[in-house]
Design a protein around this nucleic acid. Structure first.
Lengths: 150, 150
DNA sequence: TCCAATCGTTATGACTCATAGCAGTATAGG
DNA sequence: CCTATACTGCTATGAGTCATAACGATTGGA
């Protein structure tokens, strides 16, 4: 398998390691989630809508770092599965207010459980303090992302 | 901008924060690299080929976590730009040995400089010890990725 | 010699992301 | 009041990152 490769340079690159770790997380979730289950993006959207009822698609996208244009299809998927409902805002006719439905709330509970197991699995090599440190480091790196929608 | 959103759940998820940080890195590199410059994937490939002359496409993919099928186009891009050369192995006719060309070596130097500036920019919020800790944490998370090519 | 494994390859589809543009609505300033 | 600007949701499109399945050629072991 030619496992004796010189990867010294790569191993010290934060960008590279970040990419690999993120990919490992995505792979693990996909491997352990029931077939046809909500993808992580949709789960986070569902959770955010539940915590912020009546949120607009734009606000949701801003919070998640997703452009308005790309939110359309994502919101549509949740709505098509009757997990959320869209209603016109009474104060601003441009805005479509998003709210979780009852089945959406159920799905959110189940998804959160899946995510919790997944997180526990992937961070089994770290203790609580280290996980908190990691989250802090990642937040400090993400701060350098200037999200100018459009 | 409705910035007062409840994101408490998301902020504690390693997978989510990992995704955001990785995305921030990619965005920053793209924003600061000269137009038409090599993408990060191709840069890492170039660096690995340079450090391991004669490496096969399969070994390269295994080291980077990229499937054989997806390596073909990537290797072709480097070869089309005359940054690497492909030669048949004398001992195993299935293998194509990869080596950097002189212009490939030059591109590697320039790219490494770009990457270094990029890394410094993104990790400016962390000190050397914290960066080392971060790399360790990420490596421990990536360990849970079982790469079964095919 | 036969069979399983490996390598490079083609093809294909799902997902993520960015850009550009459009119509309807809101809002602030003149 | 009215106009310029900005914002919302939306369509369309292309690039890039993935995974899966299959094929022919080659290698190496049973």
């Amino acid at each position: 398998m030619a496992a004796d490769l010189d990867t010294t340079w790569l191993d010290g690159l934060v960008g590279y390691r970040l990419r690999r770790a993120s990919h490992a997380m995505a792979t693990d979730f996909a491997a352990h989630a029931p077939p046809g289950h909500l993808r992580p993006v949709l789960i986070t959207m569902l959770g955010l809508i539940e915590a912020n009822p009546g949120i607009s698609s734009a606000s949701l996208g801003a919070a998640l770092g997703i452009k308005r244009a790309n939110m359309v299809a994502l919101v549509a998927q949740l709505a098509d599965d009757d997990l959320i409902e869209r209603s016109e805002s009474s104060t601003d006719r441009r805005i479509v207010e998003l709210r979780v439905t009852s089945s959406g709330a159920e799905a959110a509970v189940a998804s959160r459980a899946l995510i919790a197991e997944h997180e526990a699995r992937m961070t089994s090599g770290l203790n609580g303090r280290e996980v908190r440190q990691l989250l802090g480091f990642l937040a400090r790196i993400s701060d350098h992302d200037d999200i100018d929608d459009d």
